[in-house]
Simulated scan of single mutants.
Amino acid sequence: MLERKSHLDLLAMVLLVVLCASWGLQQVAIKVASVAIPPFFQAGIRSLGATLLILIWMGLRRVPVLERDGSGWWGLLAGLLFGGEFLLIFLGLQYTSASRAVIFLYMAPFVVAIGAHLFIPGERLRVIQVVGLIAAFSGVLIIFGDALILPSKVMLTGDLMLIVAAIMWGATTVVIKASSLNQLAPSKTLLYQLSVSAVLILGVSWLANEPSVGALTPLVIGSLLFQMVWVSFVTYLTWFWLVRHYPAGRLSAFTFLTPIFGVLAGGLLLDEPLTLSLLLALICVGVGIYLVNRR
């Protein structure tokens, strides 16, 4: 029998911190790999590689791949949302700054909270949770708020793409939690998203006529493998296991840690500047997470 919990326990919180740290480090890996691998092709090839890994995993665990379980259309929708999110992120970054992109993208937890309130029984949004989400989001603003200047028309185009990407990111979690996908093995839920997004993103890469792949140094290959094996396979599989067992709104609050870990990883690995604002942001996010998950 599937055990569903109303609050996050220690195991869930530890896993979430590891996931957010991994996703923050992913930002560095993408930058490193983009020196030789075009962005769309990079995103598509990592989804394709992770699809093969999840198929092997399902085979070893004897999880049915083609079983008729009524999840096909929901799986297709989740995959399109997942792939569309990444496409809009990469496209939006061509028009707006990375700092602005982070601010707009991390509106996604609000989408999850509202969607859970409306469509997921037992996950109604309380005032204290709204306050917690705002507190956590303020941590993101502390680090990246300087980028919020009056946008040009070009920048506004990118901002709108990132806002839609955030809505798609949040909607993906709500669709999975509120539909029959929540009854599936996490591996099959992930298979839907990886396979659909691989076809979608690689197709766009081909249509966009991206430049050819450059010199594949060990560092570039390692960065791509990190994204493919650890991020797209291990951490996403863990995330969908968490989504299946724990409240979506409480989980999504932890994702505000990701940009903070991204800044920290950039400072430690790419010599990007680190300031005291990082500590203040971490405090705000920590307070926000506590309020969202407070009993």
Rank of each mutant, 00 (worst) to 15 (best):
E272T: 10
Q27G: 14
E67G: 09
I128N: 14
L88H: 05
A29C: 09
I134P: 02
I283Y: 02
L160M: 12
L251N: 08
L52I: 12
L81K: 11
A29K: 00
S205V: 02
G115S: 07
E123A: 06
A147T: 01
Q26D: 10
R61P: 07
F41D: 00
I176W: 00
R124N: 10
G79I: 03
S152N: 05
F110I: 09
S71V: 13
G122R: 03
H245V: 13
V154P: 02
A12D: 09
V17S: 11
G288D: 08
Y95P: 04
F226Y: 15
I37C: 00
P38V: 07
S195G: 12
T189K: 00
M1T: 12
L48F: 14
E123P: 02
K188G: 09
H7S: 15
V164H: 05
L133K: 01
L242H: 11
G70H: 02
L148H: 07
G24D: 13
L225P: 05
L53S: 01
S223D: 08
L225W: 01
Y106R: 03
S197R: 03
L105E: 10
I45P: 03
G267E: 13
S232I: 01
G288K: 09
A101I: 08
I163H: 06
S277D: 14
R100F: 04
R294G: 02
I260F: 01
L276R: 12
I167A: 14
V263R: 13
V18H: 08
M13L: 10
E85I: 03
